[in-house]
Write a protein that binds this DNA or RNA. Structure first.
Length: 109
DNA sequence: GAGATGACGGGCT
DNA sequence: AAGCCCGCCATCT
C-alpha cells in the first residue's frame, strides 16, 4: 500500500478539528511532523475541491486572520462558515487564537 | 530533473 | 501594532 500523501495527512488532521475551533497552518504542519511545511499545508488546502468532508475553513494563519487569496469570495465564505460556528471576529477581522485555537490533546473536551 | 508557485511563519523595521 | 523581507517545503509545469 502506498503511504498517504502529505495532502492526505493534512486533510485527515483538519477533519479532527472540532466545530467552533480553529488551528493555524504552522500548527497543522507541526502536528504532521513537519514544522517547516506550513506553506505546503496551504498548498494542500488549495488543492481541495468542493464536495469533501474537510472543514478547511477552520484553518487560519498565525495572526488569527483569514489568508487573502483569489477568488475573494473564498475568504468571505470562510468567515461566514466560522461565524456560523460561533467564532467571533474583532473589528480587524481577526480571531482571538488564545481562545479559539484547538490542540489535538484537547480532544474530548 | 530544474525552476517557479503558494490559503505560511518568524524576525526585524 | 502593522507591514516588509527572507527562508522553508511539497507540488506543479
Amino acid at each position: 500500500m502506498t503511504e498517504p500523501s502529505f495532502y492526505e495527512r493534512v486533510y485527515d488532521f483538519v477533519r479532527h478539528v472540532p466545530r467552533g475551533r480553529v488551528v493555524t497552518y504552522g500548527q497543522v504542519a507541526a502536528c504532521l511532523g513537519a514544522p517547516r511545511s506550513s506553506r505546503a499545508v496551504g498548498y494542500a488546502l488549495r488543492a481541495l475541491t468542493a464536495g469533501n468532508d474537510v472543514p478547511w475553513h477552520r484553518v487560519v494563519n498565525h495572526r488569527g486572520q483569514i489568508s487573502p487569496r483569489y477568488p475573494a469570495e473564498s475568504p468571505m465564505l470562510q468567515r461566514l462558515l466560522l461565524e456560523d460556528e460561533g467564532v467571533r471576529f474583532d473589528t480587524q477581522s481577526r480571531i482571538e487564537l488564545t481562545i479559539y485555537r484547538w490542540h489535538p490533546e484537547d480532544a474530548g473536551e
